[in-house]
């Protein structure tokens, strides 16, 4: 009798651990976290929009890393974004452009890298010089209204 109790408890604990293993490997990102190392590059933006820590870093739409930290430099009045890029993607030229893009019209924001033509490469702890800020919808609408209004003024004279 006691043996069968032990067996059923063993099955129960085994099933519980198997469920946990399934949640870890199949139902979360644990299996897709690369075991390779990372190197860090940073970039400065006037405006990062809705970018957050862990947002994706993509090249040609392929995810190569993620945002590690976002800081604000109070001397240059810019946002400093530190990115982790996987070691196997270490062939970015020095004049790579980093931009904040939005996936879809209302989707989440990510950093898109566009490689340039420089022969020197970005190394660990280096900084991307050419950046393009996030598009903020209110600003674009504001500019549009402003230009419309000035058109109307010109017609008046």
């Amino acid at each position: 009798m006691f043996k069968s109790i032990e067996l059923s408890v063993g099955i129960f604990v085994g099933a519980g651990l198997a469920a946990l293993f399934m949640l870890a490997m199949q139902a979360s990102n644990l299996s897709s976290i690369s075991s390779d190392g990372f190197y860090e590059i940073s970039a400065r933006f006037d405006n990062i929009g809705g970018l957050r820590v862990k947002s994706a870093v993509k090249v040609s739409g392929v995810k190569v890393g993620q945002v590690k930290a976002i800081d604000y430099d109070s001397e240059s009045f810019e946002a400093v974004v530190t990115m982790q890029v996987e070691d196997k993607y270490n062939q970015f030229p020095k004049d790579t452009i980093a931009s904040v893009f939005t996936s879809g019209l209302l989707g989440e924001q990510y950093i898109g890298l566009e490689p340039g033509g420089d022969e020197k490469l970005l190394g660990n702890q280096s900084e991307i010089r050419h950046t393009q800020s996030a598009m903020v919808l209110e600003q674009i609408i504001g500019q549009f209204l402003f230009s419309k209004a000035s058109e109307n003024d010109n017609q008046g004279f």
Binding site: L23, A24, A27, S28, N29, L30
Partner: peptide, 19 residues
């Protein structure tokens, strides 16, 4: 179904906090 899960569900933030 699975790729959305594996892209967005974080093991430490979501699964471990549930545990």
């Amino acid at each position: 179904f699975w790729s959305q899960i594996q892209a967005k569900v974080d093991f430490y933030d979501d699964v471990m906090n549930g545990v």
